[in-house]
């Protein structure tokens, strides 16, 4: 028992160091910091607002698919904030490290390799939560008429919890795809493919509740929906009672399943690793 605790303490210490190291890396280049960390994820919602503006401008009714134009603007603003917080595949280097053989140097060290991507996840989440929060309040101050407000503090807290859990699911999903590099030489296309599908399911293009009911019925069983579209609607007070628990019911088992899958894939993959070029 004490041995297990010592191991856990060692992992946590290492995680703290890794997170700090990741912070130092992102702060090392100023323009890169602004581009990657501040502007990341804002272009798409801005373009979608323009598109919706054109669509609503010639529509005969004020609401389309149950959404008025101000509500859609609110959705897209919140979508930008949430997208900043969600983990994305470009933050992982493990596939390259397997392909080039650079993983070898980590495998001979006395620690679990997953601590490194986990450190990056923690760093990215802390930084992006801070930036998203700042941006949200800045917008609320500058354009209060258009800016979305939470239905209640508990709705905001519940939405935030769903986003964090969803982001963890993204980390594990992308990690599982990346370590397929033990078997396949090139896997980035799998991650990008997953990203395209996940973007659509999550409601990044169009709010899921604006799509035909069959789409919503299917997407509610998947974690990307609960990582973006669902938390935003929860935040805006457009969801029924028990919605948050339903989200937890999907996200927690998914998280567990992905973690198990990650461990199995890593164990099997390690047996195939040849350390090319080393």
């Amino acid at each position: 028992m004490s041995k297990a605790l010592a191991l856990l303490a060692h992992d946590l210490r290492l995680l703290r160091h890794t997170t700090e190291y990741e912070f130092r890396k992102v702060l090392a280049f100023r323009v890169g910091f602004v581009v990657r960390e501040l502007l990341n994820g804002v272009a798409h919602p801005a373009v979608m607002i323009c598109l919706y503006f054109a669509l609503y401008a010639q529509a005969s009714s004020e609401a389309i698919g149950g959404w008025s134009f101000p509500e859609i603007v609110g959705y897209m603003i919140l979508s930008a904030c949430v997208q900043k917080m969600l983990f994305h595949h470009r933050l992982l280097e493990v596939a390259d490290q397997i392909f080039t053989g650079h993983l070898t140097k980590f495998l001979v060290m006395p620690f679990r390799f997953f601590t490194l991507p986990l450190g990056r996840f923690v760093q990215n989440t802390l930084l992006q939560v801070a930036i998203a929060t700042l941006c949200y309040f800045a917008g609320l101050y500058l354009v209060p008429d258009w800016w979305p407000r939470p239905a209640s503090p508990s709705a905001a807290a519940q939405a935030f919890a769903l986003v964090l859990l969803g982001s963890a699911c993204f980390l594990l999903a992308y990690y599982c795809l990346a370590i397929l590099a033990f078997w396949l030489d090139v896997v980035w296309s799998l991650s990008v493919m997953f990203m395209f599908v996940a973007n659509f399911i999550s409601g990044r293009m169009i709010p899921v509740s604006q799509m035909p009911p069959i789409f919503e019925a299917i997407f509610r069983w998947t974690f990307p929906y609960w990582a973006l579209s669902a938390p935003i609607e929860l935040f805006m007070g457009r969801t029924p009672e028990g919605f948050f628990l339903e989200g937890l019911g999907i996200l927690l088992p998914t998280l567990l399943a992905l973690e198990l899958l990650r461990r199995v894939l890593w164990r099997l993959g390690r047996r195939r690793y040849v350390g090319a070029g080393m």
């Binding site: 659509f200 169009i206 604006q210 799509m211």
Partner: peptide, 21 residues
């Protein structure tokens, strides 16, 4: 398949938008 996904997402998005009215 990745590019087919890219195409499909764009096509479906516009078809859904035009399908709203």
């Amino acid at each position: 398949v990745m590019d087919l996904c890219f195409y499909s997402v764009h096509i479906i998005t516009f078809e859904l938008l035009f399908g709203m009215g």
